[in-house]
């Protein structure tokens, strides 16, 4: 019923607008077309000017309303660089934005049609054109210079001694792997992936025996310690999006990617800073991955080294779990024996 009313009101609005519009055409004919045209021209010129003024006020108002809702200070070293680049760009572009928009609407208002004015025949001026080729070119060179400088800093190799975490995306969850005490990940092969071996680790590889697998709980990182994420995917393309750290990298099946950064604020710091008791660093999937894309959420806890050590020592490597599971299965001899390194089920 409600929708019916809405449709009816819309239709009525349509009809009225249309009738007015049609009538205005007749009125214009009656009053003399030239006169009517001049009047609409004046009205629209005035409205363009109003649009400019109200628009600029709106831009200011919008910024006042929303600037508090974007994510405060960046929580990583790279994030600081990215924010700095962002503010430099905002500065440059906002200046250009205001000048050009004011010129556009002001000219449209100022030079509206009038009987007393004759358009000025002005087909070209090489000097002017050179000026406004060179100035943007210089401004952009500056921006490109800064941009590439920061870009190489951010995408450069991670410092030695950086902690490593492997992140694997799949529809629609995140899984993490820590390399364990040997600081080296064991090999994995996707055809080994089973319920007991969610990442498809190759058990023959001794490096993998102490690898710690984490899922369903936050990834833990150490504050002020560079971390290098090795990112992969099991099925479709996902993306590790870390808005608070300003970092992002696609997770592509078959082609591992990496990114590194140094978290600079612990979760506790952030709780204090934002005043939100439930603050948590989030991992968002930023590349469309199917029906559950919206909910493909992970969490990160940034903490001190001691807290981290306390957490990780409580974890037992997946290899041990797998051995136990295999042993349990062997004991139950009625079931068909499936070894842990079984290859893919097709």
């Amino acid at each position: 019923m409600q929708t019916f009313f809405i449709v009816a009101i819309l239709l009525l609005g349509f009809l009225i607008t249309f009738q007015i519009a049609k009538a205005s055409e007749y009125v214009a004919v009656l009053r003399g077309e030239e006169k009517a045209k001049k009047q609409t021209n004046r009205v629209n010129a005035f409205m363009l000017l109003c649009f400019l003024i109200l628009g600029l006020i709106g831009v200011y108002y919008c910024n006042e309303r929303l600037k508090g809702k974007i994510l405060g200070e960046a929580a990583s070293n790279h994030g600081v660089l990215i924010d700095r680049m962002l503010y430099i760009t905002i500065g440059v572009t906002f200046f250009v934005f205001v000048i050009t928009q004011v010129a556009l609407f002001w000219f449209a208002y100022k030079y509206q049609q009038s009987d007393t004015r004759k358009a000025y025949y002005y087909p070209h001026n090489n000097k002017l054109e050179v000026i406004w080729t060179v100035i943007p070119a210089i401004a952009l060179t500056v921006l490109v210079g800064f941009g590439i400088f920061y870009w190489f800093k951010i995408t450069g190799t991670a410092p030695k001694g950086a902690m490593e975490v492997e992140v694997t995306g799949s529809q629609f969850k995140w899984e993490f792997r820590y390399p364990g005490n040997d600081k080296t990940f064991g090999k994995k092969y996707y055809k080994n992936i089973t319920g007991d071996n969610p990442l498809g680790q190759v058990w023959d590889d001794p490096y993998g025996h102490d690898d710690i697998y984490v899922t369903g709980e936050p990834m833990h990182l150490v504050v002020n310690k560079p971390v290098r994420l090795i990112i992969g995917s099991k099925d479709v393309i996902h993306d590790v999006g870390l808005a608070e750290f300003r970092m992002k990298m696609d997770a592509v099946p078959g082609t591992p990617t990496t990114m590194w950064f140094t978290p600079t604020k612990t979760t506790a710091d952030k709780i204090k800073e934002t005043g939100k008791a439930d603050f948590v660093y989030e991992i968002s999937c930023d590349q469309m991955c199917g029906r559950g894309h919206t909910g493909m959420r992970g969490e990160i806890i940034v903490e001190t080294q001691e807290e981290f050590d306390a957490w990780i020592t409580k974890k037992s490597p997946k290899y041990i779990d797998a051995l136990k599971a295999a042993a349990a299965q062997k004991a139950d001899s009625t079931k068909p024996v499936t070894t842990v390194s079984v290859s893919g089920v097709k």
Binding site: N41, N44, T100, F107, Y111, Q113, Y120
Partner: peptide, 15 residues
Amino acid sequence: VFNWLTTLWRGNIRL
């Protein structure tokens, strides 16, 4: 953009 702006400049614009 600058050329469009200059096209409007000192024109006799029919809106």
